[in-house]
Design a binder for these strands. Structure first.
Lengths: 338, 338
DNA sequence: TTGAAAGCGCTAACAG
DNA sequence: CTGTTAGCGCTTTCAA
């Protein structure tokens, strides 16, 4: 019964408000020069007709879409969902919105191809690597790219900005803590071997241990995956001699390790084994885990990400590449023996 | 040093390929009538220039943005992140993408106003209510709306489609389970009182208990929040007479309840108290919790959501409203006494 | 199958 | 401050 629902355009509003289309445009552009009177006329006509400016038409001419592409691969680790929420809310405050792109780890290539079609104003790569060809394409299109919680691989050097926490220093702290507590058979369970986070975390841990005349006594790989971490722990702890402490490259894997240690191997934490994680996701403070971990300051990381993006959008003449490293904080709870 | 990075347009490609702009357009539109020869010429020119069609220009004329707006409020409960991922991946397969909108619970209104500007092809409301005025505006713009994991409030009746699991039946199962296990002081901890999920879950639970000559012996409210659930549990279990079983309206709250019961009140699960949750998020199967719960079949729910959206996009003549309820499944683990 | 031409809804000069 | 005009990059009639 309803009429064909043709969209209401600025043209329609202009007619009803008895002004020009430009006036309508200006009424919806803050900072434009319109008299209060005209603006009122326009706004009430718009309200009457249910008019909202068409974002696509607008971005076609302004060449700004107010959309940020966010590339993700995996949400089971709560660190990312929470990062998404913070980032999205922060961007929304400034009139930007987040367009989601999922892709399997480390293969952002095809997907960024799709992103480019939307002419996004910026791209945030959360835990996916940016290939160098891709980085170049973004650079050509002068789209700022921020790697969130990951740094460049050698080949991508300086093709994109990056925001991380100080993985190296944070993990050095962990080494200190564990050695101070008198641990001698210290194990490490890595995330994805190719990932910069896992590598940096391992390096900080290993080098500080060396400085303290200790070392990684046993090593496993969990690929940032719950099940694989469980397998790694089972493996590591069922040998004749087992570690008396284990540092796990992410909280999410640490939970798997703790469960395995307690319920499969019937060992106590921290009496028999100390466990440390990384990220400080909400579950780390849940009493079942009460996990000593390294906090990544999410809000700061998000704020830096947004700042980089916005400064790049402001002075689009020269695309500056920044590398931000925010301090990480050791949070002591009850999973390490004192 | 680099030239001004003017975007490459179909015009440029046309010139290089020595064809018309229309030919370029057709080469990128599958099912269009182009000779293989022309298509090749266009595609190679496009590759050469690094051309991708501009999605905004395209949607301006086709009136299809291939964007779905997703409205969310809270990601700490893993149910939602995982739903986002599944939905986004599924949509991506069909060439759609998800634009994110965060808003505080139950106030989707302002935010949908923003959504409308993007002329999204559809809207998914995950756990937020749609006001009736808003529903009408979407209907006027003939944008299909799906409420995910929530049904209409009375006023919104039939203004949008909805996809949920069978909260009522699932919770009736829980009642049966608890009564069968011989529990007599059965408690319930609600989510948000206004939410349809919490209400349906409580109703299913309560009515089945009545049928079995039992009742809700004690009741608390957690508002789907971890901390509030903890407070509710503390309250409920520190009275002189405490429940011997508690059904919690979401897994996420159930974890808080379990931690409180075990570590604050020093009670055993399930020997002293049985606990049941709802959702079956990944953590429910973690050994620390090993939680008996009701599974919401996420993949099915996502599939239905996408189907509704797509059928609405196909025959845009008449916007049909659907109400899908998929069966929920009781998953027995170790948190209920046998 | 192909090209010419028109126009989606908007903003940005440029006059006035 | 306001209106006129041109055109963003694309698809789509319509003829050929």
């Amino acid at each position: 019964m309803s009429k064909a629902p043709r969209t209401v355009t600025s043209f329609d509003v202009a007619r009803v408000a008895q002004v020009s289309q430009s006036a309508v445009s200006r009424a919806f552009t803050k900072g434009a020069s319109v008299s209060e009177e005209t603006r009122e006329k326009v706004l009430s006509a718009a309200r009457l007709l249910g008019y909202r400016p068409n974002a696509h038409a607008r971005s076609l001419i302004t060449k700004k879409s107010r959309i940020i592409g966010l590339v993700l691969s995996y949400l089971e680790n709560l660190f990312y969902p929470i990062a998404i929420q913070r980032l999205s809310e922060r961007l929304q405050r400034d009139g930007y919105h987040v367009l989601l792109f999922f892709c399997p780890q480390a293969s952002a290539d095809e997907v960024v191809d799709e992103i480019l079609q939307y002419h996004v104003d910026g791209i945030v790569l959360a835990s996916v690597t940016l290939s160098s060809t891709l980085a170049r394409r973004c650079a050509d299109a002068s789209i700022p790219v921020v790697m969130f919680n990951r740094v460049h691989s050698v080949t991508d050097r300086q093709e994109a900005s990056s925001v991380t926490s100080d993985n190296y220093a944070g993990c050095a702290e962990v080494a200190k803590l564990l050695v101070d507590a008198g641990h001698e058979r210290i194990a490490f369970i890595a995330g994805q071997e190719e990932s910069s986070t896992s590598r940096e975390r391992e390096r900080g841990f290993r080098e500080e241990l060396a400085r303290l005349n200790s070392r990684i006594w046993s090593r496993g790989v969990g690929n940032y995956d719950f099940t694989q971490a469980r397998v790694a722990a089972r493996d590591m702890f069922s040998r004749p001699e087992r570690p008396d402490a284990v540092f796990v490259a992410s909280d999410h894997m640490a939970f798997a390790v703790m469960d395995t240690i307690r319920f499969e191997l019937k060992l106590r934490i921290p009496e028999d084994v100390s466990v440390v994680g990384f990220d400080d996701v909400p579950q780390a403070s849940w009493l079942s885990y009460n996990l000593t971990t390294v906090r990544q300051p999410l809000d700061e990381m998000v704020e830096h990400t947004v700042q980089i993006l916005q400064s790049a959008l402001r002075d689009d003449d020269e695309l500056r590449r920044e590398t931000i490293v925010v301090p990480a904080l050791l949070v002591q709870r009850a999973s390490v023996r004192r």
